Lab assay of single mutants.
Amino acid sequence: MASDGVVVEIGKVTGSVGTTVEIPVYFRGVPSKGIANCDFVFRYDPNVLEIIGIDPGDIIVDPNPTKSFDTAIYPDRKIIVFLFAEDSGTGAYAITKDGVFAKIRATVKSSAPGYITFDEVGGFADNDLVEQKVSFIDGGVNVGNATPTKGATPTNTATPTK
């Protein structure tokens, strides 16, 4: 695992066909100046998982989280898009600690492993708008004895992609 920078880890949970599971997305290594904004994309298989919603985690402190935390689910493109932009203008609602960034709610549709993997990152910046190093650890849903650990090695991303 990367020793510096922010680590975004997609949790690994267990479920069975027809059940709804909650998959946490963790941030670790949050910089001392916090995270003022970030955007990134995960990939998944809508034939295996139906993403039914995404909720902000406990490290989102904006009293009205829909102003700073936004997501979009595109089953036709097989992606989930995340956007966080601190909304106070003063840094008061920045992410300042490690913990759960988001909770992905999904219904298991198939007995195949439900991988959720890193696809791309736009950027991560602290309260001074300084770009942060970030790496990703894939996860998803274990169905029966299947284990979604494909790509469990962190993917280092030093520069934003478009």
Rank of each mutant, 00 (worst) to 15 (best):
P46T: 06
T107H: 10
L83T: 00
K33N: 11
P56E: 05
N47R: 06
T20D: 03
V7W: 14
I80Q: 09
T147K: 12
V141M: 13
T155P: 10
I104E: 01
P148K: 05
S3K: 07
P63A: 14
T71D: 09
P113S: 04
T117Q: 04
Y93M: 15
V25L: 10
D119P: 01
V17D: 13
V6Y: 01
T161A: 10
I23A: 09
G53E: 12
V81K: 01
A94T: 06
T20P: 12
G139V: 03
I80R: 00
N156Y: 11
I59G: 12
T153V: 14
N145R: 11
N156G: 08
D119F: 06
P75M: 02
P65M: 07
T159Y: 14
R28M: 04
F136P: 08
Y26G: 04
D4T: 06
A92L: 10
R77K: 01
V130I: 10
F82W: 13
D62Y: 15
V61G: 06
I51V: 06
V21D: 13
G34M: 14
D55P: 10
T19R: 06
F82R: 00
G15D: 14
P24V: 03
G123F: 00
A102W: 12
F101C: 04
K133A: 05
A158G: 13
G139H: 12
D45F: 12
V100E: 12
T14W: 01
V48Y: 03
P160T: 13
Q132V: 06
A146F: 05
G140M: 15
N47L: 05
G122D: 00
T14C: 14
F82P: 00
F27Q: 12
V141E: 13
N156F: 13
I54S: 03
L129K: 00
V121M: 06
G34N: 06
R43M: 04
N127W: 01
V6D: 10
G34S: 05
S68W: 08
F69A: 06
E120I: 02
I137G: 09
T153C: 15
G139F: 10
G29K: 05
N64E: 15
I23V: 05
S110I: 05
T66G: 08
F69E: 02
P75E: 04
T66D: 04
T155N: 09
N145Q: 11
G5F: 06
K12V: 04
C38Q: 01
